[in-house]
Amino acid sequence: MTPDASATFIGNATIMLRLGAFTLLTDPAFGAAGSRVHLGYGVWTRRLRDPAMAYADLPSLDLVLLSHLHGDHFDRAARRALPPTLPIVTTVQAQRRLRRRDFAATGLPTWDAQEWQRDGQLLRVTALPGRHGPGFVDRLLPDVMGSLIEWEVDGERRLRLYITGDTLYRPFLSEIRQRCGEIDAMLIHLGGTRLLGLLLTMDGRQGAELTGLIRPRLTLPIHYDDYTVMKSPLRDFLVECGNRSLTGVQALGRGETISLSSISRG
């Protein structure tokens, strides 16, 4: 039987990825609508929508990918639910803080990778560059990483997936395609998050620019309507992509599972 690949949208940036023998979770946030999370410097935001499922509803996980240590990506509910022995792959900065809380965190510098093998399958996670804020403001925010997930079966590539993390669009992100090759699918973090008038995550226009830059076969928008700080709705992104005649963009409903098995370029 040919192994399957799928993505299930739980809410915000929380995605369950089932890639053959491996099951991953991204940016775990399981707080209910109405719960508040801390974004640093005394700033809080309130969740507007419930996640599609609780951590207890998930199958056994192999690892967690954490793009950065902000409350809307790793909230109190997730901290209570995750077993401390579950591997977390994240930034070097977040690794230090998570290990102080006794989590099994590994920090990857940009362009470094970690691999796992099982049943003739290989999973590789490579840390990719990102920029969470404009100019000097970025230095005040947690380090953020994108992730390239590559899945191979018997030496044959089945999927190359780019998860943007909470980056802004910047031309230097073109290096991702130059170094990593063609991208099968992209999970793009949007929302146009604003604090004190500053844009901290891609809005619809920036998201469309990155989609045109990376040119994946499939683009799945996430991270756009769960918290009060998000000011750019999904429609902004869809309209911008339509204006640029970008194809392969698909909205993913909360709780929906999409197959990723047939999109590899080989």
Rank of each mutant, 00 (worst) to 15 (best):
T23M: 05
C180V: 13
R79V: 06
A104F: 03
S259C: 10
R170Q: 13
L252S: 00
G242T: 09
G135C: 07
H132Y: 13
S6L: 12
D57V: 11
R80P: 03
T164W: 02
Q95D: 03
L238F: 05
E150P: 11
G181H: 15
L128M: 11
S232L: 08
L168A: 14
F237H: 06
H223I: 11
L98C: 04
G204E: 04
V249K: 00
G40W: 03
L98N: 01
A21F: 01
D27F: 01
L39H: 02
L210T: 06
D225H: 08
R131Q: 15
P83A: 03
M230Y: 04
A7V: 15
T2G: 13
I263Y: 06
R194E: 06
T164H: 07
T45W: 05
P28G: 09
Y41C: 01
T211S: 14
D203N: 12
D203K: 01
A185P: 09
C180H: 09
R244L: 08
I258F: 12
G11N: 02
Y41V: 08
K231D: 04
S174G: 15
V64W: 00
D50G: 09
T193D: 12
L19W: 06
S264N: 15
I88G: 03
A127M: 01
A54H: 04
P216E: 08
D203G: 06
L238Q: 04
A208Q: 08
D236G: 09
R139W: 05
I183H: 07
L61H: 03
L24I: 10
L39T: 01
P233R: 09
Y224T: 11
K231A: 02
D75T: 05
D143K: 04
P28R: 04
I183N: 08
S259I: 12
R158F: 00
G253W: 02
F74E: 02
G197W: 01
L140A: 13
L140G: 11
F172D: 15
S35A: 14
R139M: 08
T23I: 08
E150G: 08
L246Q: 08
H70N: 13
L98Y: 00
R170D: 13
G120M: 01
R99D: 02
H132C: 07
R131S: 11
V64F: 08
R157I: 14
G71V: 02
M202H: 12
H38S: 10
I188V: 07
A29H: 02
E115M: 15
L82F: 04
D4V: 08
E115G: 13
D57L: 07
R79D: 01
G120K: 06
R170K: 14
G34S: 00
Q178E: 15
E256P: 12
T247F: 06
I183E: 07
A104G: 01
T8L: 08
L238W: 05
R96H: 04
R80Q: 07
L234I: 00
G207N: 06
E152S: 15
H70A: 10
I183C: 07
T167V: 15
I188Q: 04
S232I: 06
T14W: 00
L252K: 00
L69M: 05
T45F: 00
D236A: 12
T90M: 07
P171Y: 10
T257F: 02
T45G: 03
L108Y: 05
P216I: 06
R215Q: 14
T211P: 07
L98H: 02
